[in-house]
Amino acid sequence: MRSQQSVRRKGAGTRPWLVISDSGQSHFEEIGKQMIMQRTGLPARDLRILDPVLTYPSSILGRERAIVVNLEHIKTIITATEVLVLNSKDPLVAPFVSELERRVSSFSETRLNQTHGTNVYIPENRSNAARVSDSKVLPLEFKTLEVCLQCACRCLETETSTLVQAAYPALDELTTKISAFNLERVRNMKSRLVALSGRVQKIRDELENILDDDMDMAEMYLTDKLMHQQCEEIVSEDKIDDYNDIFDPDYKRDNDLKSTKSSSSDRTGLKPNVEELEMLLEVYFAEIEGTLSKLSTMREYVDDTEDYINIMLDDKQNQLLQMGVLLSTANLFLNMAIVVVAVFGMNITIDLFKSNHAEFMETTFGTIVGCIFLYILAVCFGKKRGLLE
């Protein structure tokens, strides 16, 4: 029973990861968090942002041996020799996986052709094994990062285009006819606009922070760091092999000179040229900036529409207030006529009741005409003072 529980605990944290090697081969592996930490050198807090149960904003983290990418639905760990993709069977991730496999296969073929080509520098000894040709292609980590950014930007651009195509007609229809249905539709589109703008803004800020810090970009040169580490191991092996000649003064002088050159090259190797990564990120930074500009333009259009709707509603409210003033004024003078009727309805005896029918009609029509005249006079007075239109 205890063995079964221990097996459950060990397998509880494992998830299926799609592993794509630098040769283009892909396969599934059930890997736990502890195994990934040993395999990539990542701390647990970096793996937490890839947890599909938790919600974390988009981020790109460059570490010593791996790059952690969390862009929209893409959750990937990139190393110098392989790529680990989480939730690869998700329909949203499937286009990214197919594109990544195609790019990695093309990258492997290109690198193989360069290795067998005539433009490749053949090293003379093991200490120069890290040298490559001038026409080297982007390393695996940059190829994978490019695919991640391309798929994320394409997804956001598609959502933006869909939202723009649906939002502008809805806003125009709302300006012509204010109804509960149109208001609800515009409200939903504004909620989508705010959420999409936040996602695009987060990726844009993440790229801007990386571009502003050369050390963050230098951390992403995983292949250069791996080759630099291999060169150090080769140099250390050479030192161990030549340990027996350490008492030779000529050898010691030459070895000091070599060690000085090696240390100077190590110092320069610790800070690789970040120009190629900067150019790569600048392209997608400009693309995500264009998407954000479209959303900002639509946000301004929504705000202008809201202002226009508010002005229209205020105008309707003013018209209703004027209607209320006119009705109140008419009610006032109608009440005056009712007072006259009430006075004549009293149980009293006056000469007017003894008169003929003509005098009664004169009194009635005189009261009606007087009330109408006073009403017209009150309306003209309100228009003259600017109280009524």
Rank of each mutant, 00 (worst) to 15 (best):
V283L: 15
S264P: 00
D205F: 12
L196E: 02
G11T: 04
P57W: 00
E287V: 14
V19K: 09
V186W: 02
D248R: 00
V97W: 05
E289N: 11
Y251H: 11
E359V: 13
D256S: 10
T268C: 04
S191R: 09
D266Y: 03
T81Q: 15
G366V: 08
M35H: 06
D351R: 14
V104L: 13
D22F: 09
N347V: 14
E109H: 14
D266E: 03
S23Y: 03
N255Q: 03
I372P: 02
E359R: 07
F373Q: 06
D90F: 10
D205H: 11
D51M: 01
K239T: 01
Y251Q: 06
M227D: 03
G41A: 07
V341F: 09
Q25F: 14
P249Y: 01
G370Y: 13
M323K: 05
L171C: 00
L193I: 04
R63M: 03
D213R: 05
K75P: 02
C151P: 01
R45S: 04
Y375I: 04
I178D: 12
S98V: 05
L112R: 15
M1D: 14
Y168Q: 15
P249H: 09
F365N: 05
A129G: 12
A378Q: 13
K316F: 10
V186Q: 01
F247A: 05
C155M: 06
L71A: 02
V120N: 15
S264D: 08
R2K: 03
N125I: 00
R45Y: 09
R385L: 09
T367Y: 04
R48C: 02
R185L: 15
M37V: 14
T364I: 13
D46N: 12
V97A: 11
E287W: 02
Q5M: 10
D238P: 02
N182I: 03
L61T: 07
R48S: 08
L86P: 01
R192S: 07
P16A: 07
D134K: 05
I74N: 03
T81G: 03
N318C: 00
V302I: 14
V235K: 04
K33R: 11
H73L: 01
F360Q: 12
E159A: 07
E206Q: 12
L281S: 11
V7P: 00
M220P: 02
L47Q: 03
L313S: 02
A195E: 01
K75W: 00
E359S: 05
E208Y: 10
E233G: 06
I210N: 08
S106L: 15
H27F: 15
L140D: 02
A218N: 05
A80F: 06
D46A: 07
F365W: 14
C151S: 08
E101D: 13
T305C: 14
Q38L: 09
I234P: 00
T115S: 07
F285C: 12
P249K: 05
